[in-house]
Nucleic acid binder design. Structure first.
Length: 260
DNA sequence: AGCTATGTTGGGCG
DNA sequence: TCGCCCAACATAGC
């Protein structure tokens, strides 16, 4: 559940189920998830309530009524589960029980997720070295960021200290729409290409976020449904290839995306 | 059985 | 110091 659009969905999910409910019990899972002593989580959360939420990139910060934020990073497989029954999910790493008998769990099978406590949004942003939230970047800012960026464009876009929120899937997606090869060097891109990338980034994030929240399918004109080696690309021009960039599986169309 | 997976971090190398 | 590559983490699904 991890890139900006999925986290945006988790934000709505929490906002619509779990706000302003007094936490009467707290259950904690695997040690490695917790970035402060586990007893601190228990102390802070018990008797408290979530009153709002804020997203920075792939992080979701839940504002608690009494001080502090509970911060969630979903790793590769994290998601929230709000429920009304007794059995707790096998992979629940944090379960809040509310006064009304309902519960909210952070489910994280691969345990790549993380939970933090922090007193301030800005401190947290600095500690994690997070760049600006992708959908809040202006075109001028985007162009400016690329002026001093080197290395492959895909690695640049995945760098959370550069821009926060993009990951493997949607970087491939936006580069496909922009017709830019993922191994192209950031320093070789023209202003025009960077502007095109900016618009495609915004389009992709907006469209995918709407698909996630409305429960609709990703458009067939997108690369994602064709993210299979040898599949014909959505433009009907080439066959999808898979290479490694920055250690991640990277799907692209060699006809639509020429390296520079 | 073996390969793949929406993420992050740390080490080694040139 | 940078850019790049790889391995590690832990589990599920094809």
């Amino acid at each position: 559940m991890p890139e900006l659009p999925e986290v945006a969905y988790q934000k709505i999910y929490i906002d619509s189920t779990s706000l302003h409910k007094k936490i009467v019990d707290v259950q904690l899972g695997a040690d490695k998830i917790f970035q402060s002593p586990k007893k601190d989580f228990k102390e802070v959360l018990l008797g408290n309530e979530v009153v709002g939420s804020h997203q920075i990139g792939k992080y979701l910060l839940l504002k608690l009524e009494q001080n502090d934020y509970l911060v969630i990073h979903f790793g590769m497989t994290g998601k929230m589960d709000y429920f009304n029954h007794d059995e707790i999910h096998k992979h629940a790493q944090l379960t809040l029980s509310f006064e009304d008998g309902s519960k909210l769990s952070f489910i994280c099978p691969r345990k790549f997720g993380k939970l933090f406590l922090t007193g301030s949004l800005e401190d947290f942003r600095k500690q994690q070295k997070l760049g600006p939230h992708a959908t809040e970047v202006s075109e001028e800012q985007f162009l400016e960021l690329f002026e001093k960026k080197k290395g492959s464009v895909k690695t640049a876009l995945m760098d959370q200290s550069f821009i926060a929120g993009l990951g493997n899937l949607y970087v491939d997606e936006m580069l496909f729409h922009s017709g830019i090869h993922p191994k192209s060097k950031a320093e070789n891109l023209s202003k025009k290409e960077i502007s095109k990338m900016y618009r495609d980034m915004m389009d992709v994030l907006d469209t995918v976020t709407r698909c996630k929240t409305e429960g609709t399918k990703i458009p067939d004109t997108y690369l994602q449904p064709h993210r299979i080696k040898g599949e014909v690309c959505p433009n009907g021009k080439g066959k999808v290839e898979m290479i490694k960039v920055g250690g991640r599986s990277t799907y692209f169309c060699p006809e639509c995306q020429k390296e520079k």
